[in-house]
């Protein structure tokens, strides 16, 4: 097992918070608030790309989905409810245990493993859809990490990346605003130097022979207290990449 992309200090910090993953009013409130907009994006793009039936109760039936950095399972459970066969991986052992416990209580079957993306590559596993949501800004080596994830996508499959841009505005909003002023996130959750620009992600993905299918911003609407898709990629943004068939 190769742990080269994991930063040990980061693992400890999230382990300490893991118990609170599923409390929508607790420390992970921002992520719970953020969840609907990214779920809606995933749903729309996956249904469109694979030509699925949007009216079906379980439109994702038959698809395999990997959630990298799954945390407490906030993305895995909705994916499983939509019918997908879901694998969630997280370097934090405690996270994975909490996620598995919660899935069992919810009557959902999800394969949670405390392993890294690199170890799945070594085993030659591949998935129809790979989710990389709010993870890139926490890894030690973005290039290595993203190219590993790209290898986990089946030919004809999709990869989603959601993260925070490295701009002055992102520093003001995501670190000063969210951690110091609003106290949405514990101080030290994010480090400015680890934020990644869309261009950096695009170039790694292109080197991994992925094509960029879509990109959009995600902005917070304070009056409605909800996140919306937008054209502004200056702070939070999502990138969708497709792996050509026969690649």
């Amino acid at each position: 097992m190769s742990d080269t992309t994991i930063n040990p200090a980061e693992i400890d910090r999230f382990n300490a918070m893991a118990d609170e993953w599923w409390d929508p009013t607790g420390k992970f409130r921002p992520l719970h608030k953020f969840n609907p907009v990214r779920l809606a994006y995933i749903r729309e793009k996956v249904i469109g790309h694979f030509g699925l039936d949007g009216l079906a109760r379980e439109p994702f039936k038959g698809l395999s989905i990997l959630d990298v950095g799954c945390g407490g399972g906030l993305l895995c459970e909705p994916m499983a409810r939509l019918g997908a066969t879901v694998t969630g991986i997280d370097p934090g052992d405690k996270n994975v245990k909490i996620a598995a416990l919660h899935a069992e209580r919810s009557g959902l079957e999800i394969d949670y493993r405390a392993v890294t993306a690199e170890s799945l590559v070594e085993k030659g596993e591949q998935f129809d859809v790979v989710l990389n949501m709010e993870v890139v800004e926490h890894v030690a080596d973005v290039d290595l990490y993203l190219s590993s994830c790209a290898k986990l996508v089946k030919p004809g499959g999709l990869m989603f990346v959601a993260t925070i841009n490295r701009t002055a505005r992102a520093f003001a909003l995501a670190i000063v605003g969210a951690e110091y002023v609003l106290k949405w996130l514990p101080r030290g959750t994010h480090q400015y130097s680890k934020f990644v620009t869309p261009e950096e992600i695009t170039s790694v993905l292109k080197r991994s022979k992925m094509t960029i299918a879509d990109r959009c911003g995600v902005s917070y609407a304070p009056l409605e207290d909800r996140w919306r898709k937008s054209r502004d990629m200056g702070v939070n943004y999502m990138i969708l990449a497709a792996k050509p068939r026969g690649n």
Binding site: P24, T25, H32, K33, N35, P36, L39, A40, I42, R43, E77, P78, M79, A80, R81, L82, S106
Partner: peptide, 16 residues
């Protein structure tokens, strides 16, 4: 809308 994106329809944040 919650069911369409796979959320737990009875979860507190949905009801809120």
């Amino acid at each position: 809308e919650a069911a369409r994106i796979g959320e737990d329809i009875g979860a507190p944040d949905v009801l809120e």
